[in-house]
Nucleic acid binder design. Structure first.
Length: 804
RNA sequence: GCCGGGGUGGCGAAAUCGGUAGACGCAAGGGACUUAAAAUCCCUUGGGGAGCGAUCCCCGUGCAGGUUCGAGUCCUGCCCUCGGCACCA
């Protein structure tokens, strides 16, 4: 008798990874696929620490789905790449004093090795990196398409400036108004000309389309909130000098309670409306506001400050002259940059009015004390509108003012235009040349890419411009239009632009003369299923949708939405907290894979908790998965030895259980409920073992179901069963619905709502039969106690409830 | 403050439509095998109680109510927690 070998994960995995590479296992025919399936996962940022367990959790979940689809007969394209530009890489490079251009390839090499080791079904022919000039050439090209279409424009905007770093810092690097790296240094605002993409033009469509996308609800909700649609009206307050102050409000019904106006300190009308004697105070205030950083200005719960301009405007409803103020709680970038203040019905206006002793006029009746923001009450102090419910008054007041040209209904979005300028080094240069005569001129497409030069000193400096400006032979170029001396744009673009189109590039990576091939794109896009984390629910996913929408409108792609189906996975945390370098709780998978094998570790991660919820990483549970795989290993070896010929039929109970298992694993895997799919397979294996059933036909379907989860393991055992070809050429098992639901059922008998007995009856038994059986049951009798049954409730094949 | 998840054994969790709460796994305890340990296998394991025993009873899904023959699931009001947004008019 031959002794079955023990399961040696390292050997099995090495063997199959080699064979897969040799057989081009993961390389579908991109030009003539039968049933194309584009299985996308969010490409990683290749950090110096390496792939962490959160990445592996996400990729495993996505890979299982791709492998399921493969077994269901699709030609699955599962590409991978690296999002390697950006401030993280640059800051890390600065801290170790090496150019990121040297570090990134090392990091990528490490990631590539780790990604291969865990057994993802990646098509490595189509690997990409956003830092590759062959890639960012087209990132720049996209910028130019948007520029030509008027969707990329320049505007002065505030950035955070750290005087110690002498550098622009990102919002995330500002902590309570102080620089992250210099906790004693306050960050200031500077105003720089920057490039913006007109994403707000698409706000309405980005919002409406959400209704017809098959996305996780959590992600859709995040996007809706981010777009932030508000319905309201624009109202006009005229000044004696004839100026019109436009305000946006969601509560036009409260206009009778508007007792003063507030403009943002940057509002263009401020100078014109400032009275002579108020000038010094107003200018001082505006200077103070500018000295603040952007982040802390927007943090609420602070003491309200502001200055009276010394002038008045007319409330269009009451006709009263009301004072005009400026205050930094009003933001220039939202609405019109001016508000009507209704202190009785807005918390912020109330605080401000209280601080500066401005009049407060209640116009909505309510029990609660002021400020009362309710929309439930009826109007009061509002002339002919008194007594109307708020919502009705909103329409009527706007209509009434509209007749005099003092109001118009308006929809306002919270979404801001996307600032893509970064005064940094590690990104794709924005392909623009400034000419004194011609202004900003697009770099001609044949001159792309504008390569990022390899420079020694890429540290940002006091000038506020990118380090690229110091690289004179790069900086000075001829104007492509008139030939005069011009200067390159020295800002690079946001890393989110790199990732906003990578899925378009994957199928076409081998083409250098076009960003994406029309035929390939037609075949493979839009992406069939996108699986990724909700940390990208707004920025990455919104920007990708916007870029796709714009490219669609410009005729470059045939679809408007890039990701018709998206599923968000959960977050892997450690000891109840997010994994982060600063907390020191980042788990690197390598040691676990080395010890247990990739398959065990993959399954363990999926068994940790629901994929779409995430979970806490605790390694105690790994042994359970390993024990399960060992059991399957031995079971299959026994089956192979015991039944070399045609397999005998299975005992009825096992046969039924098999079909139930196939049903559950099929449904659960499709729904990404991987933890319960694994549990179902475990249950089935337990049953096989206790029934001492070692038939081949009991295990072959099991192996196919296991293949997405533990691909190397399943391949090896498939070969043990004598198959020549990869298990991924097999097809996903089918189940017989009738068989899966055959057999006797246990019916619970309740008396007055409490479980008092259990009956085993044939499936489909009638109520009368079950009632009769139940009343004969000893323990049921005890509780019925001879009393008449007042009511019975029967749930077929499940439960009988008797009320006495 | 606003918007979303979530709260179930010692732990991770499971539970179509309201229908046997705790599947599956970990850990723990007991036993078998072994010179021994590991591995493996078998049994027990929500809390409390009755019985020699097979068994049986009571309580139990964050808290307080409600609807229902029946509530982890639905409704009302709270508490806690995680995530996102946040002076957005």
């Amino acid at each position: 008798m031959t002794q079955a070998p023990n399961y040696d994960a390292a050997a099995v995995e090495a063997k199959w990874q080699q064979r897969w590479a040799k057989d081009h296992h993961a390389e579908p025919d991109l030009d003539r696929p039968g049933r194309p399936f584009y299985n996308l996962m969010m490409f990683p940022y290749p950090s110096a620490e390496g792939l962490h367990v959160g990445n592996m959790f996400a990729f495993t979940g996505a890979d299982i789905y791709g492998r399921l689809k493969r077994l269901q007969g699709y030609d699955v394209f599962e590409p991978i790449g690296f999002d390697a530009f950006g401030i993280h890489s640059e800051n890390y490079a600065l801290s170790v004093g090496t150019n990121p251009a040297k570090l990134i390839p090392q990091n990528i090499a490490m990631f590539r090795r780790q990604l291969k080791r865990f057994g993802g079904m990646f098509d490595w022919r189509h690997e990409l990196s956003t830092t590759d000039p062959r890639y960012y050439k087209w990132t720049q090209w996209i910028f130019l398409q948007l520029f030509r279409a008027g969707l990329a424009f320049r505007k002065k905007a505030a950035v955070n400036w750290c005087p110690k770093d002498m550098s622009v810092v990102a919002n995330e690097q500002v902590i309570n108004g102080y620089c992250e790296r210099h906790p004693d240094t306050k960050v200031e605002q500077r105003f720089l000309e920057q490039w913006f993409f007109a994403i707000t033009k698409y706000a309405g469509r980005l919002l409406e389309n959400l209704d017809r996308l098959d996305w996780s609800d959590s992600t859709r909700t995040l996007q809706r909130n981010w777009i932030g649609r508000s319905e309201g009206a624009e109202l006009v307050f005229e000044t004696p000098g004839g100026a019109k102050i436009r305000v946006f409000t969601t509560r036009p019904d409260t206009v009778f309670g508007a007792t003063y106006l507030v403009l943002a300190p940057e509002h263009p009308l401020v100078d014109a409306l400032t009275a002579q004697e108020q000038r010094p105070a107003v200018n001082a205030y505006r200077r103070d506001v500018r000295a603040k950083d952007i982040v802390s200005r927007k943090v609420g719960e602070q003491v309200k400050t502001g200055v009276f301009l010394g002038s008045y405007a007319r409330n269009p409803a009451t006709g009263d002259a009301i004072p005009v103020w400026i205050a930094d709680y009003v933001l220039m970038e939202y609405g019109t940059g001016a508000i009507m203040a209704v202190p009785a019905h807005d918390k912020r206006d109330f605080e401000f009015a209280t601080a500066f002793r401005l009049p407060i006029r209640r116009v909505v009746q309510a029990e609660e004390p002021l400020p009362s923001v309710t929309e439930e009450g009826a109007l009061t102090n509002s002339g002919q509108f008194d007594g109307l419910p708020c919502r009705e008054a909103q329409r009527k007041i706007v209509a009434w003012l509209e007749e005099r040209g003092l109001a118009a209904p308006r929809v306002q979005y919270r979404l801001h235009d996307w600032c893509i300028s970064r005064q940094r080094y590690w990104g794709p240069p924005i392909p623009i040349i400034y000419c004194d005569r011609c202004g900003p001129v697009a770099v001609p497409e044949q001159d792309l890419p504008v390569e990022l030069p390899l420079i020694e000193d890429f540290r940002p400096d006091a000038s506020g411009v990118s380090p690229l400006a110091r690289h004179k032979e790069w900086y000075f170029v001829k104007c492509p239009r008139c030939g005069a001396q011009g200067r390159r744009e020295t800002d690079v673009s946001d890393t989110f632009l790199d990732s906003a189109w990578y899925f378009l590039r994957y199928p076409s990576t081998e083409f250098d003369d076009r960003p994406w091939d029309a035929a390939r794109t037609k075949t493979w896009l839009p992406v069939t299923t996108y699986i990724g984390g909700n940390e990208h629910a707004v920025l990455h996913l919104m920007y990708s949708r916007f870029v796709t929408m714009a490219l669609h409108e410009l005729g470059h792609v045939h679809f408007e939405e890039p990701f018709p189906k998206l599923r968000a996975h959960g977050l892997i945390i450690k000891d109840g907290a997010k994994m982060s370098k600063s907390r020191g709780n980042v788990v690197i998978p390598d040691a676990y894979i080395e010890k247990w094998g990739a398959d065990t570790f993959r399954m363990y991660l999926m068994f940790l908790g629901p994929f779409q919820a995430g979970g806490d990483f605790r390694d105690e549970g790994i042994t359970g998965i390993r024990r399960f795989l060992d059991k399957v290993w031995h079971l299959v070896h026994e089956a192979a030895l015991l039944t070399p010929g045609p397999s005998p039929g299975l005992p009825a109970a096992i046969h039924r259980k098999l079909h139930q298992t196939i049903r559950k694993v099929t449904v659960d895997t499709e729904n990404l409920d991987y933890n319960t799919a694994i549990a179902a397979m475990m249950e089935y294996v337990n049953e096989l073992r206790s029934a001492e059933c070692g038939a081949r036909s009991a295990v072959d379907a099991l192996l196919v179901m296991l293949a997405p989860y533990a691909p190397h393991f399943a391949e090896e055992l498939w070969a043990v069963l004598g198959h020549d070809r990869s298990i991924f050429h097999a097809s996903w098992p089918r189940y017989d619905e009738h068989l899966a639901t055959a057999g006797d059922v246990e019916i619970v008998v309740q008396v007055n709502g409490k479980v008092r007995g259990r009956l085993t009856v044939a499936r489909g038994a009638t109520e009368a039969q079950v009632v009769e059986l139940a009343l004969r049951d000893e323990s049921v009798q005890k509780f019925v106690d001879g009393k008449p049954v007042k009511k019975t409730v029967y749930v077929q094949d499940r439960l009988l409830s008797l009320v006495v």
